[in-house]
């Protein structure tokens, strides 16, 4: 059996890739994909710990997180569509109207 540490390390790497992508990509949709990636790495950690403890609670939590992700995607894509209608762009840097 593979030790828990390897799974956590993999999750850490995936999370970092997601974070880098989130900040480098300028398309809102791709940023959103990266958020999903980070969310999944967190799920991986939970599942790995579930096995380490022999406790199903963490797996149940992952199930709930999956539901949460579905809700989040529905809203997020809704926002993207709404913004797109107004700006005809999915580039985040066009959304810099909040500057001081």
């Amino acid at each position: 059996m593979v030790e828990t540490s390897y799974y956590i390390a993999l999750a850490g790497i995936l999370f970092s890739i997601g974070a880098v992508g989130f900040l480098m990509r300028r398309s809102v949709i791709q940023m959103f994909l990266c958020v999903e990636l980070m969310l999944n790495s967190a799920n991986l950690v939970l599942v790995a710990f579930a096995r380490a403890w022999g406790n199903l609670e963490a797996q149940t939590a992952v199930f709930i997180i999956l539901t949460l992700a579905a809700a989040e995607v529905a809203i997020g894509l809704g926002i993207i569509v709404a913004i797109f209608r107004k700006r005809v762009s999915t580039n985040v840097d066009d959304l810099s109207g909040l500057k001081g």
């Binding site: 300028r26 985040v92 959304l95 810099s96 500057k99 001081g100």
Partner: peptide, 21 residues
Amino acid sequence: AGSSLSIWQAGFARGYGVAVL
């Protein structure tokens, strides 16, 4: 105070993200 600090607030969400990172 906000105006003097506004140089940090260019409005680019990615800029804030980098600060978090």
